[in-house]
Design a protein around this nucleic acid. Sequence first.
RNA 1: GCCGGGAUGGUGGAGCGGUCAAUCACACCUGACUGUAAAUCAGGCGCCUUAGGCUACGUAGGUUCGAAUCCUGCUCCCGGCA
Length: 338
Amino acid sequence: MPVGTAATVKSLCREDLEGLGAQIILANNYHLFLRPGSSNVKKLGGLHKFMNWPHPILTDSGGFQVQSLSADDVAMCKIDEDGVTFRSHLDGGSLHRFTPQIATKSQIDLGADIVMAFDDSTPPNATHARTLKALDRTHRWLSECIKTWKSSSSKQTDPPALFGIIQGGTYPDLRQQSARFVIDCDLPGIAIGGASIGTKAQETAENIAFVREMLPKNKPLYAMGVGVTPSDLVSVIKAGADMFDCVAPTRLARCGQLYHPEPKTEYLDISKSQFKLDKKVINSGCDCSTCTSGYSRAYLHHLFKAKELLYHKLATIHNLRTMIRTVEKERSQAIITV
RNA sequence: GCCGGGAUGGUGGAGCGGUCAAUCACACCUGACUGUAAAUCAGGCGCCUUAGGCUACGUAGGUUCGAAUCCUGCUCCCGGCA
């Protein structure tokens, strides 16, 4: 899932995304709640109409933002047993509140196809006690999300799917406890997020495989925030993940890192002066429109250095297509195996 | 020809007697990036591998304990008048 936090996959339009073979994109409840406002999006006919994307959309609840924003600045938000009071990063601090009910309602207003439970995402360095607390809260909040989702779904002709999120951080006992709880809720899909996802590819794969074992075969497993490089995707897919998203392909593209089958880094740094006179395309084996059209490394280097807007589009197309092609390849092989 | 202003590191441009290897910006180089406060952020950026040393603010001298900073000659640039 390409990440489109603010109802846009940065620098791309719908036609670009369709050309990449993107089937579903991700948007963010926290950001859209603050701007332009979930109720405004609802008035405009929902997210699909608003952003001109007639294909599936998953919204993240905002649980992750609560954690990542407060990690930088503790005054930005306060967590209590019922929810989170946070300051907007847009206007210097106006106060807002998310509870499981509000976060779920907001996502339903946005009109997402898949809505995520509002969780207390565990920071990577959390102690066992802190992780346990986050876990209890996440589970309690999940029950509240389910109530809001069910009552709202009964009034809709085409209700969204709700995914629960497994927490548990770096502690196997807590992860197992969380997996058990979330699976027993019998939701349309399950996600694993926060620190429980791990930071190393091997670790992440093990954690995913662990949950996959416990999960019924017909339930999709979503690995949140995973996939910095193509090889990450392969390892996570093999471990049993069905869905994933990561800001890396789009962000790395904007920062000059273009995926390339380099053994070490898996990308070229197009900002390097070594590309100044390089007539080759980024990756001759790539089927993205940037490569097949013949845009050279020298040209992309120039656009990057000159801070030209076209760079972002060409680079983002390349990185996202590389990721989607990786997934397509794995999918076709998986079908043969089955 | 006369009068006035100026020459600082890759570039623009601070500094106007010691705390100056020299604010800052740009450029350049490194590195980061995991449910996007990211066209972002961090570090480096005269030479020597460091404590430290060496060479430097157009150029040649001078004043001073001490000069990028003050004085003089020269070279070049810019403006005004001829």
